[in-house]
Design a protein around this nucleic acid. Structure first.
Lengths: 201, 201
DNA sequence: AAAAAAAGTGAACATAAATTCACAAAATGA
DNA sequence: TCATTTTGTGAATTTATGTTCACTTTTTTT
């Protein structure tokens, strides 16, 4: 008779898969991609290295999924902000501030995912992700130009600039030196102002 | 009697060192750090791999020098622009445009230097370089605020944002798809406008 | 020209990390 | 419980490169 997975088994497998993704994510958040070797992920997930390959065909595919999962979440939040019923400049500022706030909140992987380098497969995925972020801002920009709130401009370039601006401004602060709450708030405000002004809002 | 290098020999050694640096730079420009292995550098320089280690203690140190050399050149150009006798917003725009123009002319090198991943030693050097770029813009910003041309703002954050903005806006265009001259000119203009507006100029 | 020192060589070595695989353990169905 | 299938294991394998070193060639000095 054929082997049939029980519901319980099915669940445990899904659980393992999830644990692997979560462990990988945590490793990246803590030490960047550099320290997230397959063996380390396995150990963190409480599994053996071989087992990882029962769930993912390669390290690259595992990390592509780690990346896209995290970014999906982030994009969802930003999309919600972008669709609010408010002036474009307000939505733009809120979206930027929202991202930056989370990035500054502890050892978030936002930066590692957006800026840290990896092997070509993951790199390709990352470029797509950055584009996704850009698209959120592009949407807001187009709306703002339509409503006359912003001057006409190259929305693709401006969107990329916005993503780059807040990303780079986070590089320093995200590093070793942890800032206090007031400093963080000030930084968020500075970046927000920069981005809104930049598009003529 | 002790061995003394002749002037000719001295020159040849210096020449070799230079050839190694140039070969390494070219390899990075063509295929990124990924394809710039020590053996490849040696071959491109017309030397053996072992010889590389007579001139540089490690691959990392070689590439740190490749990086800093290229950046020094770039910084010099930007510094000259920053010190011109002109309105701050004009200097800011000129500096940004100057960088972007060159990056678009030699795409891969720019990408490799700006965005491509490397080992920690080189990464550390790159972060310092980005800071150097930021400092150029910070200088301009401070001058602009002093003269009342720009509103008061967080110059560190704004400088980082500027560097990030034009960098990110270059990542896409720098990729496989090469743009025509008109597109490039338009992109440069878009980025320039973005950055000037961003600081309230 | 011979001896001594330095520079050049590239195959061999070291290392690190991804991937595989023969086997063990666990789950399923009869 | 036994046979079958799936899942888990981790040591061994593979691969890719940085680095070394015993040896050769070149340069310098006497």
């Amino acid at each position: 008779m054929a082997y049939r997975r029980s519901a319980l088994m099915e669940e445990r497998l899904a659980d393992n898969r999830d644990r692997i993704l979560l462990a990988a994510r945590k490793l990246v958040a803590d030490g960047g991609f550099r320290e997230a070797q397959v063996a380390a992920v396995a150990a963190a997930a409480g599994l053996s290295t071989g087992t990882i390959y029962r769930y993912f065909p390669s390290k690259a595919e595992l990390f592509v999924e780690v990346l896209t999962r995290a970014v999906e979440q982030e994009i969802q939040i930003l999309d919600e902000i972008a669709q609010r019923d408010a002036p474009a400049s307000e939505r733009l500022g809120a979206a930027v501030a929202s991202f930056v706030r989370r990035a500054l909140a502890g050892p978030n992987l936002a930066y590692a995912f957006i800026a840290e380098p990896v092997d070509p497969e993951v790199e390709a995925a990352r470029i797509l992700c950055r584009k996704q972020f850009g698209d959120v801002f592009k949407t807001i920009l187009i709306a703002g130009i339509d409503s006359g709130e912003f001057p006409t401009q190259d929305c693709d370039a401006a969107a990329a600039c916005i993503v780059g601006a807040y990303t780079e401004a986070l590089v320093g602060p995200i590093g070793p030196a942890t800032r206090n709450t007031r400093d963080k708030a000030r930084l968020i405000e500075s970046i927000r102002t920069f981005c809104i002004r930049a598009v003529g809002g």
